[in-house]
């Protein structure tokens, strides 16, 4: 896809891009919608499907009125049949189309694991690279208001385990727009997991199109004492924790990998080399999760940099409770990150 290649090359040229100088500020949802809008306008092979993409709420606003602009053949509602519809997106992609399949919640992707894991992720390899599956699967994580166990799951750990998938978790409006455009242009199946609470954020977003390359993390805050690798919404919590810690003279460095697959290992290792201490803050469960994978990667490739054992900030290993008293305990956030930083700084065994 030439348009995207051009976008990525342009981005590379401007990789010192200082987004803070961008004066235009929009919400996360507007940024996502802009990406879809641009893609639909640019390339006839792109279509957007999913339950409710053409309803009056426009899926939190991210698909609002795109059906009116591009027609109901290119932006269409679907039956719930998540597994079949994923296969249908795969099939369309094999014939030259580029489907974007949107879900209100990642929980529903569990219905489609057969098509995602058994089919989409393997079709290129299984057939010796003769064909590929350029599909985007987009899902929004819910949280709060008693959403409970089946409407709030953060399943990135499951998807990170599977070869053959890209896994993208943008935390800012700028990244959301650029990474969605990259995902649509990529020739591989890509899972994008966004967090509903990020939809409240606004940020600097250029009006025009740009594409952010996969596998390129960013330093959200420069520091010297502790490295925090923060995923998705945990970037927000980590930034707040960093403010609080700086008042106590603790300077944390925050790394946002932006894509978990491919993972920018280099940016994490460089930071750990500087700070000697690593905390991974993820929105998902702790056991077998993203934090475990990143910790293992650093243990394998940067053990000599570590001055203290790696720590993980994650949700409790239980289903999400509905009641807010219990929910408060379930989710990790700023306070956990702050105490984790203090704990890790109290250790100096290496």
């Amino acid at each position: 896809m030439d348009w995207s290649k051009n976008l990525i090359e342009e981005y590379e040229l401007n990789s010192g891009i200082d987004i803070a100088n961008e004066t235009r500020k929009v919400s996360y949802t507007v940024a996502v919608r802009e990406a879809l809008d641009y893609a639909l306008a640019e390339d006839e092979s792109i279509f957007v499907m999913g339950q409710g993409v053409d309803d009056p709420s426009g899926m939190f606003g991210i698909t609002l009125d795109l059906d009116k602009k591009y027609g109901s053949h290119r932006v269409f509602d679907t039956p719930l049949s998540e597994n079949a519809l994923t296969g249908i997106a795969i099939g369309a992609s094999l014939t030259g189309m580029r489907p974007v399949y949107m879900h209100n919640r990642p929980d529903f992707l569990l219905m489609a694991m057969d098509q995602i894991v058994n089919h989409a992720s393997k079709w290129s390899y299984m057939f010796g690279g003769h064909i590929s599956v350029p599909i985007v699967i987009h899902a929004t994580v819910g949280r709060g208001w008693g959403g409970a166990a089946q409407h709030t799951q953060t399943l990135q750990g499951l998807f990170m385990h599977v070869p053959g998938l890209h896994l993208v978790m943008p935390s800012t409006p700028f990244d959301a727009k650029g990474l969605i455009l990259s995902a649509i242009a990529d020739n591989n199946p890509t899972i994008i997991i966004e967090h509903r609470w990020l939809y409240r954020q606004s940020g600097h977003v250029p009006e025009g199109p740009y594409a952010i390359p996969f596998g390129r993390g960013v330093v959200r805050r420069i520091g010297k004492d502790v490295t925090i690798v923060a995923i998705s919404y945990m970037v927000v919590e980590a930034m707040q924790a960093a403010e609080e810690l700086s008042a106590e003279g603790i300077n944390v460095e925050i790394i946002d990998p932006r894509t978990l697959k491919p993972l920018d290992e280099e940016i994490i290792l460089q930071s750990v080399q500087k700070t000697g201490r690593l905390i991974i803050a993820d929105t998902g469960w702790k056991t077998g999760g993203v934090g475990a994978e990143i910790a293992a990667m650093v243990a394998e490739k940067g053990f000599e940099y570590l001055k203290a054992p790696v720590k993980r900030v994650a949700s409790l290993d239980i289903p999400t409770p509905a009641c807010y008293v219990l929910e408060d305990r379930f989710y990790a956030g700023k306070a956990n990150i702050v105490s984790c930083c203090k704990e890790i700084l109290s250790v100096n065994t290496y």
Binding site: G87, G91, A92, L94, T95, M97
Partner: peptide
């Protein structure tokens, strides 16, 4: 059964094109 939706999607692709 796994190839059945994929064949269906190829038909959708044909219609869209």
């Amino acid at each position: 059964g796994g190839g059945v939706p994929i064949a269906t999607g190829a038909a959708l692709g044909a219609v869209l094109r």
